[in-house]
Design a protein around this nucleic acid. Sequence first.
DNA 1: ATGTCACAGTCCCTGTGA
Length: 253
Amino acid sequence: MKLATWNVNSLTARWGRVESWLVEHAPDIVLIQETKQSDEKFPFAPLAALGYESAHYGQGQWNGVAILSRVGIEDVRRGFGDEDPEARLIGATCAGLRVYSCYVPNGRALDDPHYAYKLEWLAALARILAERDPTKSVVVGGDFNVAPTDLDCYDPSLFEGATHVSEPERAALRAIEATGLVDLTRQLNPGEPCFTWWDYRSGSFHRGWGLRIDLVYVDEVLLHKATASYVDREARKGEKPSDHAPVVAEFDL
DNA sequence: ATGTCACAGTCCCTGTGA
């Protein structure tokens, strides 16, 4: 079973690249972030032609998350509950696995109200994961907008006082891990940076100025069934790429 | 620390968000 997570930075702008990537890599389950589409614009039919059922939580101009599955999609949950101001979380059950696609708020700056919203959002995610059905394996993937450790940042000295690396954000990730989850890409690639995002500006990708902020959390059962987790840097190259590369996880179920 | 990209509306430029 092959699962991928990818912040596409507008599915409208990225459709051609996403379609060819799905054909080439043939993942079974795909977690998408930043579709930047309403549900009306989401390409349900073209995805169905590729063999994927889809669930989308769209907002329009900003945010928007989706799950694509070739192995069934049931019990879709959009957001945390009744007072979700932004479309950043969708969950579904695919082939018996509970999967979540997450687009964690950026935070903008440590003194910005959006940073407090980011921490509250991560705490809400930890709460629903703590309350999950413990008999069902879970995958929580997406753009977390947090580099879990300094290894996940190309130059920590440039990020002092910035978002994405602050201690409260990292503690919020540890609270998610404390519900029984493991950062799969890091677990399978100890010591390797495995960056997933590079700023469009300044030729960051070619200079290696990246962060690892797109993460795949799995429970212990799935950890032991995992055979690989890697970043497809090829998808960050060429014409009109997203600023994020897909992260892939493979399991022998 | 910025040599970019995508979006919508003010609509072929500008402000916002990343």
